[in-house]
Write a protein that binds this DNA or RNA. Sequence first.
DNA 1: TAGATTGTTAATCGATTAACAATC
DNA 2: TAGATTGTTAATCGATTAACAATC
Lengths: 212, 212
Amino acid sequence: MNKKVSDAVIRRLPRYYRYLKELERIGVEKISSRELSECMGLNASQIRQDFNCFGGFGQQGFGYYVKVLRKEIEAILGLNTEYKAIIIGIGNIGQALAGYKNFIRDGFRIVAAFDVNHTLVGNTIKDIRIYPMSDMKDYLKENNIHLAIICTPEAAAQQVADELSKAGVDGIWNFAPIDVHVDGICVENVHLSDSLFTLTYKMREADQAGVY
Amino acid sequence: MNKKVSDAVIRRLPRYYRYLKELERIGVEKISSRELSECMGLNASQIRQDFNCFGGFGQQGFGYYVKVLRKEIEAILGLNTEYKAIIIGIGNIGQALAGYKNFIRDGFRIVAAFDVNHTLVGNTIKDIRIYPMSDMKDYLKENNIHLAIICTPEAAAQQVADELSKAGVDGIWNFAPIDVHVDGICVENVHLSDSLFTLTYKMREADQAGVY
DNA sequence: TAGATTGTTAATCGATTAACAATC
DNA sequence: TAGATTGTTAATCGATTAACAATC
């Protein structure tokens, strides 16, 4: 049994994946950990350590094939399957995600949306039909849905998460500005504002450094 | 001069801020590091260490006043001022952010949007006027803008960032799926997909754990 | 073979946690 | 005062970096 991979490593994987896809796109076939470290601003040892959590993908004395590495990381991230997803709450952010083409490229297919607002129900957004919230439970029973994207207001998010958990989705991607927590299924809380506040922190800090 | 605060601490600050605001909202006036550690799932020592990077906000033998602590962290994050922001690229995500009310609550005011698409130019979205991309430079010269939110496609993002840097905004909040980098000003790259891929990684892992 | 670069072990560094004196 | 909890120093733990043997 493999030793548990640390969260720090896991959070770097999508970034590796991005850079490798770009390298592949511009026609780079082969790369060493040193070269990759330079373009990503990481330490070469760290890169090798990271990859070796999952087995060796390189060739000694040579480096890594970009395509091989990209495919391996793709598989590690679970991106070699199709995911069927629903969106709950089709306001600002729900609508934006419904129309976000990049997700489709990576195998995510949004098959339905749910909302409490009856003026929205029955409409479609980017070919995605909007159902009443009350239909969600039955919909999940009849369709095999892997992923639920919560875009409701804060007040509704935890309750929706509980329902989703009971209905048996595999994962929740939560955009409501609150940490939802449910046992047994995977949750990723996004918190757009957190990243904004980290930015304002840095801006204030830079500002003060300039003054002194 | 204070020792540099580590990135790990900085990334926890917005989370403290969220919890403290919620505690304040539900009428909690006083809290100890132990109580806060229990509701946030952190270690009490860590919480005290974190706060003490910025000076002591508590009272020995008593704990912390929620309101005091919230205000202190608000100030540390630089949220006690108004920020004027512009959005560049008013597609899916740009529109969602334009309409995101939570930002206004925290002192962010989006005053203009820019886009290359001439069919959008002249329209308003949530009272925000859309200008042609070519006007951005002049607009920034005439208005004191603190923050720019990049919501362009990947291909345009780095060039836009360079222009923004030259025009002298203080910070860039980037939603294009690429790491933009500019010298001298603060950048926060968001990468929605990274968080999604972290989720699918965990889902795959949980799935396999179930099998064995 | 010689050169290069991986995979992996060992050393270092920093972050987290524990302990406790200070003090409200 | 006694009890509680902070602020802070010390100990531990884990992550990052360095070093090097394995090997292509």
